[in-house]
């Protein structure tokens, strides 16, 4: 059975049939690994993040990397055209990807991207929102919940101030933005289920 990796971080969703799963995985890791490193570098620049224990930093990054990348790559999902652009630059229609067996997760990604893009966040707002997403005190396995909570609260306050400053007339914008967080959790869970079905040896 052909392996389909309909992740925009992959070069293309379907490789040549003669490629082994190991080769497909090695190719994917060429784009996946640098993307994860960028998320780690981003985290290091969040004021206060490096002061957390190393284990809590790792726990937050393990749990939140997918969500950070989802926010970062939301623009790759063109809702109007119903297409996904992969990092290779190639664009695939949602219909074609569904034809390869990808369904529910992609539909939910499109819904999320549409809602996020409709908020028209500035780069600064998007960066701060991403920091709030990453520093979530309710991730499983956090050792010092209090420290993570304090950091997340300060980031949320900064985000609220920033969003209110850029759109003082739209008081619901901040609430709408925070409501994207449970959507990201849902996507994260769906993505984890997909990963479990694709065992990497």
């Amino acid at each position: 059975k052909d392996i389909v990796l309909a992740c925009p971080m992959n070069m293309c969703p379907q490789d040549k049939p003669n490629k082994t799963p190991q080769e497909i995985w090695e190719d994917f890791s060429l784009s996946f690994t640098p993307a994860v490193r960028e998320v780690v570098e981003f985290a290091k620049h969040i004021p206060g993040f490096s002061a957390l224990s190393e284990n809590d930093q790792v726990t937050l990054l393990k749990a939140g990397t997918f969500e950070v990348l989802t926010v970062r790559f939301a623009s790759l999902f063109n809702v109007k055209e119903q297409t996904v652009t992969f990092i290779s630059g190639a664009t695939y229609s949602l219909e074609a990807l569904k034809g390869m067996g990808m369904g529910g997760l992609l539909d939910t990604m499109f819904e999320f991207s549409e809602k996020l893009n409709s908020l028209e966040l500035t780069a600064e707002e998007l960066g701060l929102f991403t920091a709030v997403v990453l520093v979530s005190a309710d991730r499983s396995g956090i050792e010092n919940i209090n420290s993570v909570e304090l950091l997340q609260e300060s980031l949320i306050r900064a985000l609220r101030a920033l969003v209110s400053k850029s759109n003082p007339c739209d008081v619901s914008r901040f609430t709408k933005l925070l409501l994207k967080m449970p959507d990201l959790r849902t996507l994260n869970n769906m993505h984890s289920e997909k990963l479990l079905s694709f065992r990497i040896d």
Partner: peptide, 27 residues
Amino acid sequence: FSDPASNLGLEDIIRKALMGNLEERPE
């Protein structure tokens, strides 16, 4: 694997990046 993140080798990449392991970085 019961943990999808382990399946991806995510923790290993994260720990190396956190430690600033320059040898692991692409040029």
